[in-house]
Simulated scan of single mutants.
Amino acid sequence: MPTYVSHMNSPIGRLRLVGDGNALFSLTMEEQRHARLDDAGWQRDDAAFAEVRRQLDAYFEGRRTTFDLPLAPAGTAFQKMVWAALAEIPFGHTENYGELARRIGSPGAARAVGLANGRNPIPIIVPCHRVIGADGSLTGYGGGIERKRWLLQHEDQAVPNAQGRLI
């Protein structure tokens, strides 16, 4: 089955969408850590991502708080468990790594949860930006802390300022 790619502009920069025409495999931002490099075999097909674009546009315009898309992220069983738990964090809410680890039944695995969170191949839709440090601080984000801050502010979350205090 072919793999398709498309790009779209957003308030947080250009996004790359990759999938097979049925399910979304990845969404990456410019200069994102752990982003898969373009594969020469991918075919550009903007039409294959019409629904993904429609839902992302509605999210960025403040008209959508959840996504209803077929997703097929590649990862380990543990990563997929973490990503499924991320998808359960409601719009406008945050959770810290320890809380997420406890919720998936691995209370001592906050660090492993953080690593899986950082490898999330479908950010925004699978909302890894909603995971924060135990002290409420913004922690690493593959797309960069400023994008994480923007996404949380977009969702009306109080976010820490440069000194780590909530604003």
Rank of each mutant, 00 (worst) to 15 (best):
E88V: 01
W83L: 06
L71M: 12
D46H: 14
Y59G: 05
P70W: 14
F49N: 07
T66H: 13
P70T: 11
A74W: 13
A87Q: 15
R63W: 00
L56P: 03
Q55I: 08
F91S: 05
I89M: 04
F60T: 11
A47F: 00
A72I: 07
P70D: 08
T76W: 07
R64Q: 15
A85L: 07
A50I: 12
D45P: 03
A58C: 09
G62Q: 03
T76V: 02
A50K: 09
F78V: 02
R64H: 12
W83G: 07
L69R: 07
A84Y: 01
A74H: 14
A58M: 07
A58P: 05
P73C: 07
Q79E: 13
Q43G: 02
Q43C: 10
T65H: 10
A87P: 05
D45C: 12
R54S: 14
D68H: 12
A48V: 07
E88A: 09
L86F: 10
T65D: 06
Y59Q: 03
W83Q: 05
T66N: 09
L86E: 09
L69D: 06
Y59E: 01
K80Y: 01
R44G: 03
T76F: 04
T65Q: 14
A48R: 11
F60N: 07
Q79L: 01
F60L: 13
